[in-house]
């Protein structure tokens, strides 16, 4: 079953002058076609202005396609009557943790989504407890969000989405404003939700380290999908990635350079452990050529 299915999705930002004449048209999305299966962890990478956030906003029906279609769990996002269904099924976490927390107490914020859906009071409490436990923020339920760290706030925001029982979570650069610790915290939480609760995750980011555990990586540039595949497939094409102004994880870059300098290392090394292992094998086989 596919969770998301987009066909030739195009979105244009139209800028008009004072008389309403079209001044310029910017294609933020240009013929994006992709399919995301239920339960997958998919990462979208892209430089600023590559259209990745615009795509995310389509999934939640905040933006409507200019051309093409997008189906969320089989529902067309352009059909008004599905609007709330779509938003319940595909929850969205935004970049700035401060600007998406509504209540002055953590548990009340997590309850905001279910309240809007008209869930009965007892069920709300159950859901709030479950989702706060799922993100490891249960001990903070009576705290004020202002006193939490960025990573904790972002986990509260994720809990707020989980309490709506979505099938898919879209995270639009959730770690862009966090410190390295907060980033790790959030990514670990998201991976666990994907594994344990089988939620489909669509992670939009420009940090390479965050995508190495994804099932699938999509690279966007200038509103188009330019690369698609497993993290290993993507990161073995260092040259191509660089042409889209993207960096690769440090260890991947190191092994790429070493290979270019003549060391017979495999392509697409993603972690330090892998690198150490590959070097060890090389040494045993005398590949260092002493």
């Amino acid at each position: 079953m596919s969770m998301l299915n987009s066909d030739n999705l195009t979105f244009e930002y139209i800028r008009r002058d004072e008389e309403g004449n079209v001044e310029s048209i910017t294609k933020a999305l240009d013929g994006v076609s992709l399919e995301i299966k239920k339960g997958d962890f998919v990462a979208i990478l892209g430089h600023n202005g590559s259209g990745k956030s615009t795509f995310a906003k389509h999934i939640n029906a905040i933006l409507m396609p200019t051309e093409g279609t997008l189906y969320v769990d089989g529902m067309d996002t352009r059909e008004e009557e599905h609007l709330w269904d779509i938003r319940q099924r595909a929850g969205m976490v935004f970049q700035n943790p401060d600007n998406q927390i509504i209540a002055t107490v953590v548990e009340e914020d997590v309850g905001f989504g279910p309240e809007n859906l008209g869930v009965p009071t007892e069920e709300i409490w159950k859901r709030v407890e479950e989702s706060l436990k799922a993100v490891g923020m249960y001990e903070y339920r009576t705290h004020s969000p202002n006193k939490l760290s960025g990573g904790q706030k972002q986990r509260v925001a994720i809990a707020g989405i989980m309490a709506m029982k979505p099938q898919c979570i879209v995270l639009d650069e959730p770690t862009a404003m966090l410190d390295p610790n907060g980033r790790r915290e959030v990514i670990r939480t998201v991976r666990e939700l994907n594994r344990r609760e089988k939620v489909t995750v669509l992670l939009i980011t420009h940090y390479m380290e965050e995508v190495i555990h994804a099932d699938k990586v999509i690279v966007m540039d200038d509103g188009k999908i330019v690369m698609q595949g497993t993290p290993r497939e993507i990161f073995s094409q260092v040259e191509k990635l660089k042409s889209y102004r993207m960096d690769v994880p440090q260890v991947t870059e190191l092994s790429y350079e070493l290979k270019r300098a003549g060391m017979p290392l495999p392509d697409g090394i993603l972690s330090v452990e892998e690198f150490v292992e590959a070097c060890g094998r090389l040494r045993q086989s005398g590949g260092f050529g002493e």
Partner: peptide, 14 residues
């Protein structure tokens, strides 16, 4: 809006 807020109608209370 992304969290389905659409005014007071049909809302329950935590």
């Amino acid at each position: 809006e992304a969290r389905c807020y659409h005014g007071g109608a049909g809302r329950t209370k935590m």
